[in-house]
Amino acid sequence: MSIVIVYLLLLKATATSFAGMGSLPQIRQDFVETYRFLSDDQLSQAVLVGRATPGPMGAYVVAVGYFAVGWPGAVAGWLAMISPALAAIPLLAAIQRWLHLARMRAAIDAVVIASAALLVAAGVRLLIDGSQQLVRLFLQT
């Protein structure tokens, strides 16, 4: 698996989300369901590590990259995490020019709300996964 592919898939997820964990649904779809680079358990562990670590919550993509291809994947994850932030500077110019338009503001607000809905779906999935893991462990012991 190419580190470039991992970077581009992670970048696709981070660049289309509007919060640190907002990239989770896209990452799950690409890395778990479509390409099977990692399991649901590994993705859950990545989320857990990211949320338990001080700093940006989006840093969990470093763990996703590591689980996919080892330390080069962690570097790819870090690059995918920081790349979208550079869009802030040209965005500042666009905001100052266009944000007074109600339709543009409403479209951006709608994207943020939809990100929250995507997070709800991802959070429920994590709760189900965690419950299933506990039940499996209980039955094994």
Binding site: T14, F18, G20, P56, P84, A87, I108
Partner: peptide
């Protein structure tokens, strides 16, 4: 309004 992690 920037895609990705807000704090970054």
């Amino acid at each position: 309004l920037t895609p990705g992690t807000n704090i970054l």
